[in-house]
């Protein structure tokens, strides 16, 4: 854990210990540590002199933050309007039953986190699925198993 707090200090340093940069700091912590560990938040609270509750308020308000460890791979199903009219809801429920996890959750073996997003700006390719930043366009339920195989 010591090294982890070192990372947090580095990030704080970069942002000049500014309270106004809280969101940016949390974003950086998450991208380095994959989620927001409680210890890191406690540390932030002390260093920035912000009540822990306030940090949690921000961390739970914004969808981008996670308080639990995420899986090795992140699957994002786009539920933006364009993808919705092309049937992305069905893709999601199919995935939910295939992975036995609800949207927002992580599989028990920590291999996949299933998330939803609202428009990734590639609407032409809808319904859109993104796994670890790789885009899979024009998705249909019958292509899914084969794609997931690559990540298992």
């Amino acid at each position: 854990m010591l090294t982890d707090l070192g990372t947090v200090n580095e990030i704080l340093e970069k942002h000049g210990y500014q309270r106004a940069s809280l969101i940016g700091i949390l974003q950086d912590i998450q991208s380095r540590m994959n989620y927001l560990p409680r210890k890191a938040l406690l540390h932030l609270s002390r260093c920035l002199d912000i009540p822990l509750a306030e940090i949690y308020e921000v961390a739970t308000f914004y969808k981008a933050f996670h308080l639990e460890p995420k899986g090795r791979h992140t699957i994002q199903v786009c539920l933006g309007t364009a993808c919705h009219v092309r049937g992305s809801r069905r893709i999601l429920s199919y995935l939910e039953s295939l992975l036995e996890v609800k949207a927002g959750g992580t599989t028990k073996d920590l291999s996949f986190s299933l998330e939803t997003v609202n428009c990734l700006g590639a609407c032409a390719l809808g319904p859109l699925l993104v796994i670890d930043r790789k885009y899979y366009g024009k998705m249909s339920t019958n292509r899914m198993e084969e794609i997931l195989k690559k990540y298992r």
Binding site: I23, G24, Q27, V58, F61, Y62, K63, A64, V117
Partner: peptide
């Protein structure tokens, strides 16, 4: 530049 946190 400030990045948002995913809130409409």
């Amino acid at each position: 530049i400030n990045r948002g946190g995913g809130a409409f």
